[in-house]
């Protein structure tokens, strides 16, 4: 079913420039309470320039899938390629930036030094580092906060700094694991808006894990609905919303229609039962 859906939408573009491609991907964690099937037979293709959201209740494997792409978890069976390489090779080639649930800035580094961290590790020259720190800070609207320490910034600003850190080097793929989950709704709306603009400007491919239906619908070109026990994909929904999305698009009938389909998908996966 998924293959068919992937094939019917934008077929030429998708076929040639696959950023992530998973086939029958499964991952089982062995725990003291027996095996936990975090991912079961996941088939999914993500094309270049897409904004794909993963939505589902806890335990559905959405974060695990992102971590497999990032080579932070090893699949038990099945195949996955990232930029045509194995996840391990892609990680060594620094093919992606990863934004975690918490900002995870290093408290002993100023904001500019935090953003320079990946650049230092990847051996960028000092001049190049300064230029990239400046431009990414501008991208996330944090110009002027270069010399501040993380504790001097609000939670939303810290998360923006961590996005800047993931954007600072040339990775075309951005993996975001519930980056705004810990923020209040007002800040979250604002950051969603900024993220869309940033995506439009940078032309990156974004994989975005969330458990908020409005957030998924507002941001994505495609929404992957997942469900737990075993973690699997139950539906993939193409967004019909235009590329230009003001915040009040969320009251349009089209938006509500897509949100309704996501909710249906979650219900079909028995996500509301417990």
């Amino acid at each position: 079913m998924l293959d068919k859906m992937a094939a019917t939408s934008r077929p030429t573009e998708r076929a040639t420039t696959q950023v992530v491609s998973a086939r029958k991907l499964s991952l089982t964690f062995e725990t003291n309470d027996g095996p936990v099937h975090a991912l079961s037979n996941v088939d999914l293709d993500i094309g270049k320039g897409e904004f794909v959201s993963f939505i589902g209740p806890s335990g559905c494997g959405k974060t695990t899938f992102l971590r497999v792409i990032a080579d932070l978890e090893q699949p038990s069976s099945g195949e996955i390629s990232v930029n045509g390489m194995s996840p391990g090779e892609a990680r060594k080639a620094r093919a992606y930036g990863y934004v975690f649930q918490a900002a995870g800035l290093f408290p002993w580094r100023t904001i500019e030094k935090n953003i320079a961290l990946p650049l230092e590790i990847m051996d960028y020259s000092a001049a190049e580092r300064a230029e990239r720190v400046r431009s990414t800070l501008e991208l996330v609207n944090l110009t002027g906060f270069e010399k501040k320490y993380p504790w001097q910034l609000s939670g939303g600003m810290q998360q923006r700094a961590s996005i800047a850190r993931a954007l600072a080097f040339d990775a075309d793929l951005l993996l975001m694991d519930e980056p705004f989950g810990a923020l209040d709704e007002i800040v979250r709306d604002h950051l969603n808006d900024e993220l869309l603009k940033l995506w439009a400007r940078t032309n990156k491919t974004i994989c975005f894990v969330t458990h908020s239906i409005p957030e998924a619908v507002y941001l994505s070109t495609r929404i992957v609905v997942m469900s737990p026990r075993p973690g699997r994909v139950t539906d993939v929904i193409e967004s019909t919303l235009p590329a230009e999305r003001p915040l009040d698009i969320r009251e349009s009938p089209e938006f509500l229609e897509i949100a309704h389909r996501v909710r249906e998908g979650l219900r079909a996966g028995h996500s509301y039962e417990d």
């Binding site: 990680r91 620094r94 975690f100 918490a102 590790i121």
Partner: peptide, 9 residues
């Protein structure tokens, strides 16, 4: 997450 971050780099 900080150790994972270093691994992603």
């Amino acid at each position: 997450i900080n150790l994972d971050l270093m691994r992603t780099y």
